[in-house]
Amino acid sequence: MADVLEVRDLTIEFLIEERYYRAVQGVSFDIGEGETLGLVGESGCGKSVTSLAVMRLLPTHTKVSGQVKFRGQDLLKVGEPQMRQIRGNEISMIFQEPMTSLNPVHRIGTQISESLILHRNVSAAKARAQSIDLLKLVGIPRAEQIVDEYPHQLSGGMRQRVMIAMAMACQPSVLIADEPTTALDVTIQAQILDLMRHLTAENHMSTLLITHDLGVVAEMCDRVAVMYAGQIVEQGPVREIFRHPSHPYTVGLMNCIPKIAGERKRLVPIEGNVPSLQNMGVGCRFAPRCPKAMDVCHEEPEEYSVGTEHTCRCWLHAEAGVTSR
């Protein structure tokens, strides 16, 4: 399986009060053709920032290092005009808030047509026809009418469908979805996830799905990367991660969500809070909250192999040896 997107040692630093702080450190992952990688973590773990770095949409005053290779080309090195050719065309993105991600003063059709006219050089009339097809593709009823309506006339679920239609317009090879269903009700979430699953499968799209919901991950992803405080702490195939979670943080996450079936037990929370950017400390970043912390955790662990394509950044698995990558 050829990797469409390869991210290597991505490090992102933000300028806060005249000092740089690392929001993301040494993040590496690959996404193969037609594969869905879930990037999981709590707010502030750097998952959204990572996706913005891939799109080169981070604010100025941000230091980014490492490599983001899209089909072999390092996106961190290409010029802005070239990057504009890639955004929306080769890699497109869906955001969490369907309410604020659409421009309220433009018609739905105009907004979908925009990227078609921009990247595909089609005529306005043709773009409109294609927009209607796209709306039908994402399951919007009355597409011929909706195309001339404004975002406020649509419900949240419908807007997210429009967002997906926009992202799909140029048939990108990579789709980045940042919490695409977090703002939606469960029954609508089920519709949208179903839609995304079909579209990505039919178009062999590679997807980076950012979410905090382990349920969504289990349903949608082929592989999972768990992030904590700016680092990927565990990465592997979805079954591996759910069957044999290795990092104490992953284990903690799985234990602290209430179950929908089975016996009701007292939850086992992860004590403490996520460390802030400014006081990240040294060594393993999870150590202060970790029930299994040891002396050695004052030193930074590396990624160790714990199974087939399954790595874990934790001293508990150090004897397994550093992964070769």
Partner: peptide
Amino acid sequence: KALLSAIPVPDPDA
């Protein structure tokens, strides 16, 4: 019933 079935279950083999 629909509401319950719509919840994503954190188990890939469910």
